[in-house]
């Protein structure tokens, strides 16, 4: 096992972890606390305790529509990123592809390009091509930013797989296809799961792409939240935000149940 942390390095590590916890978790706690407030505007500290906002939000058609749009979009983007990213990462790492490095850099480039600008560029590009279906456009835009997560995690997992395992399977008579399913896939599953989780959350939480590509009928949750906030700032905003937070927590729990968080995040 790893040695116990002690001394100056240990203290710094604990300090940074505590700071991370405070700045990441406490704002979320504030939001959740507000969602139970009896006050008619969202102010801290919350007043009293009520579930009225939840009862109101849950039957709000606009909210339900936005939530459904976001979940659908996130699931579709995740599936598409998986279907495109897995073979791409595999080919780039296992076959001799001319220009593999360049292709990988291009696939990962959304990581470093400013997403807001990418969204704007996409909007103009799609207008030029007369692509008017907002849902399709959103889907394409989201896949663009979720695909790198699959490519990245699958690549990292593949690099950890011992090549001699695959070679041993080949010598034992397994075709390359069966080597992949029987030997490679079981070992990169945690990485794939982690990539899918990232993809789902990035899409579910996306604002800068959706900001340009959504319209009134196809409005993902983050855009809907932003719109609502400019109209009225009552605790229902906090309630809707709590739903978003819960979705994230559920996704993480799902990953933990499926492959174990530690294994998935180790790639």
């Amino acid at each position: 096992m790893a040695a116990r942390l002690s001394g100056g390095g240990g203290a710094l590590t604990y300090f940074l972890a505590a700071a991370g916890l405070i700045f990441i978790v406490s704002p979320l706690v504030v939001v959740v606390a507000l969602s139970f407030s009896e006050a008619s505007i969202a102010t801290y500290p919350p007043v009293g305790f009520t579930t009225a906002w939840y009862q109101r939000v849950i039957v709000d058609d606009e909210f339900r529509q936005a939530f459904l749009t976001s979940v659908t979009l996130a699931l579709a983007s995740t599936v598409a990123s998986f279907v495109l990213g897995l073979p791409a990462a595999y080919a780039l790492n296992r076959w001799e592809v001319p220009g593999a490095r360049t292709i990988e850099t291009i696939l990962l480039s959304p990581f470093i390009l400013p997403i807001l600008i990418t969204g704007l560029a996409l909007l103009q590009f799609m207008a030029l091509l007369r692509m008017r279906d907002a849902l399709t456009n959103l889907f394409i835009g989201h896949v663009l930013i979720t695909l790198p997560y699959l490519v990245r995690t699958v690549t990292a997992s593949l690099k950890q797989v011992d090549r001699s395992l695959e070679e041993a399977a080949l010598t034992l008579g397994a075709s390359p296809w069966r080597v992949f399913w029987r030997v490679t896939a079981p070992q990169i599953t945690p990485g794939i799961a982690a990539g899918c989780l990232f993809a789902f959350m990035v899409s579910f939480d996306d604002f800068p792409i959706s900001f340009w590509l959504s319209n009134a009928e196809n409005m993902p949750l983050p855009i809907y939240l932003q719109n609502s906030m400019t109209k009225v700032f009552d605790p229902s905003i906090a309630t809707m935000s709590s739903f978003t937070i819960m979705t994230g927590i559920l996704a993480v729990i799902g990953l933990e149940k499926l492959v174990g968080l530690r294994r998935a995040m180790s790639v």
Partner: peptide, 27 residues
């Protein structure tokens, strides 16, 4: 390779870690 009917031993053994000993041999 997979149609040459060759048995090969590797320096790091290259056993499939997610399969039991019997499953490895049965592969």
């Amino acid at each position: 390779v997979h149609r040459r009917n060759i048995g090969m031993l590797f320096q790091n053994y290259a056993l499939f870690p997610h399969m039991s000993v019997a499953e490895n041999v049965a592969f």
